[in-house]
Amino acid sequence: MSKKIMVVDDEQDVRTFLTAILKKAGYETVTAGDGHEALALVKATKVDLITLDLMMPNKTGTDFYRHLIKDKDLSQIPVIIVSGLPGRHLAVKDPAAIFDKPIDPDAFLAAVEQALA
């Protein structure tokens, strides 16, 4: 069974891009446009990995992350940060990987594979 990856980004284009990369590599995807949506989704469906943009309107990226790590079950899900935010490493402790926008699809896929292994 293919792994399910949740793509969280407020920009439609980024969601489309990441989804296209992941689908092509054979992953299943779900998407969320902000932190609230993402939290609801991650509670409702089991996801294996999250790609997260931190700089979204109303700070929902970091808020979502805070909620995630407080939850015993959800905190186990690996998170890959995809953000153009300078100093993004400060906002999140121990992400599986950090990507600056724009991303290199191959490097991104390699990081996803490694995080899921």
Binding site: E11, D13, V14, F17, M55, L85, K101, I103
Partner: peptide, 20 residues
């Protein structure tokens, strides 16, 4: 710079999707 990065990401995404 940040905004340009985002636009670049969108452009690369578009190209990727067209290619796929």
């Amino acid at each position: 710079a940040h905004r340009v990065k985002n636009i670049l990401m969108g452009l690369e995404g578009g190209i990727f999707v067209v290619n796929t």
